[in-house]
Design a protein around this nucleic acid. Structure first.
Lengths: 217, 217
DNA sequence: CGTTGCATTGAAATCCCTCAAGCGAGGTGG
DNA sequence: CCACCTCGCTTGAGGGATTTCAATGCAACG
């Protein structure tokens, strides 16, 4: 793999600093349960060991915007301020390493190498967030779903029939669409022979080039 | 002003580290001209001294997503990687302080206090970006425009009739709308006695509470 | 075998976009 | 100085992509 390619992947994943392999205690969250909630004190950060996590915001009337999906080795809850601005839930049964923020923060304060790692990580997360802003603001439903599928492949590091751990509803709230639109679009992709839906949680790419073209940019 | 309030503003503004008051040379950009372009090497960062700047991405077919507006004391071009992922243009005539990235990067490498400042700054920018994702993905046109107007007031630190330095087209591409929708919404706000349009670049708030309610969250 | 939750599909509605024209301020040249 | 042009903003009418509403299908589970 070329240097260039490695860099691309690094960008895509936004891998957290190795420093976050610091000591913590393991915990399990059953699918659908809350890991932390909007407004709670930011006492802990969580490294995903198995499973997958969603972070999201809820508007007064219940509309939900999923800000990101987080897979093995990702870290969630590492946000500034003393209250979480968003919530996090386990998508599937999930094991995490729970780390005290006070310890991490102390490490950031005391070890410049760690600080720099976090800065790199955060900067890349910011780049990612900006790409998502382009998707949300200016892409059509087809483009959104195509982008998402490709993103899922890179992020999950999936084998050929990629696994879709999240529900259609999660995908919708991540892409700024409705469940129905997501469903319709994915099934249209199958009719167009771009993908094959093995089952609703397992998708096989038939025409990656077409998908990439649709994803636009 | 309470500590709490000061913190809110700090969040809203995402002020860059004072370390970025490091030496550089001044430059002027006429309204509408490019400061840096997508794909160019990231040799410089720019601190806005006067005027306003927009950063944005362009899709193949010309669709544009404005990622942010940047006012006096903001810094643009401080992104990871060796190529800009986005472009930046002067909205009005703008004076900037041009700073060599190599110098800033060296400073980040050598001075832990500076590194921490940048980490805080980037983290807050990330929080801001996530809020924008909620806006783009889940808010209606009215909610988007209301949010924008309030945001403009906080960011610009404007007096009562707030100044709108950017065009309707810029606003549209920032909110994921069309020029027409922005225009219609703003004028509807005036008909509803929520704002008074002194002229298209100067708006007076008549009912801030209503506006905040509309902005949702 | 009924229940429950998620996914799919269809039909109708709606919000926002597209297209088109008019308007007004600012700049330019005759 | 004023006609004229240009560009950005506004306004209207119509259309379309996506949502909403509603119903059905389907797989997991007790």
């Amino acid at each position: 793999m070329s240097q260039e390619m490695a860099c691309q992947l690094w960008y895509a994943r936004c891998l957290p600093p190795p420093a976050l392999e610091i000591s913590g205690f393991p915990a399990k969250f059953v699918a659908g349960t809350e890991i932390y909630g909007q407004g709670e004190p930011t006492d802990f950060a969580y490294r995903v060991l198995t499973g997958a996590v969603r972070t999201f915001c809820i508007l007064r009337d219940g509309r939900r915007q999923i800000e990101g999906f987080h897979f093995v080795s990702d870290v969630v809850g590492m946000v500034p301020g003393d209250r979480y601005q968003e919530s996090a839930e386990a998508i599937t049964d999930t094991q995490v390493l729970v780390m005290k923020r006070s310890i991490i923060d102390a490490l950031i304060e005391s070890d410049p190498a760690v600080t720099r790692e976090f800065l790199r990580w955060t900067s890349r997360s910011l780049v990612r967030a900006k790409e998502q802003m382009v998707l949300l603001g200016r892409k059509t439903a087809s483009e959104k779903v195509a982008s998402f599928l490709l993103q899922l492949e890179t992020d999950g590091g999936m084998a050929d029939p990629i696994v879709v751990p999240m529900s259609r509803s999660d995908i919708a709230d991540y892409l700024g669409l409705t469940v129905e639109s997501v469903s319709r679009t994915i099934n249209q992709f199958e009719r167009d022979a771009i993908i094959e839906i093995v089952n609703c949680r397992r998708i096989h790419f038939l025409n990656r080039a077409k998908l990439a073209l649709l994803a636009g940019k």
